[in-house]
């Protein structure tokens, strides 16, 4: 770990965060927007682990990253259930063609 420092990992996570925001903004398919959310959560996790590694290597950052992973799993399950329900009611998952919350 001589020439790779904290900043390298932070830059990777910054790029990943920007790509996640981009996926959330430009994608019309709701499942692809969920993938953008996963990218954002992953970039936050890289930050947590990198700061934890380069500062005394205490494991509180790891615990927080673990909880982020748990929350991501719960979020993916509920969000996909909502997307499936939207598909049943509206017959599409394109976000710009869904304008009603209920029939």
């Amino acid at each position: 770990m001589l020439d790779i420092g904290l900043t390298h990992f932070l830059v990777v996570s910054a790029i990943l965060f920007g790509l996640g925001v981009l996926a959330l903004t430009i994608r019309r398919n709701a499942v692809l927007m969920l993938m953008g959310i996963e990218l954002i959560l992953n970039s936050a996790n890289i930050n947590l682990i990198a700061f934890s590694r380069y500062q005394h290597l205490n494991l509180e950052g790891h615990v927080l990253a673990l909880f982020v992973i748990i929350l991501a799993a719960a979020e993916a399950a509920v969000a996909l259930a909502i997307v499936l329900h939207i598909y049943k009611t509206n017959n599409t998952v394109e976000a710009d063609r869904i304008s009603d919350l209920k029939e």
Partner: peptide, 18 residues
């Protein structure tokens, strides 16, 4: 990247959960 940051458990949890 997690493995490079010596976070082995998080790396395995990433593969299993994600």
């Amino acid at each position: 990247l997690y493995v490079l940051l010596s976070a082995d458990f998080i790396a395995v949890a990433q593969i299993m959960v994600y």
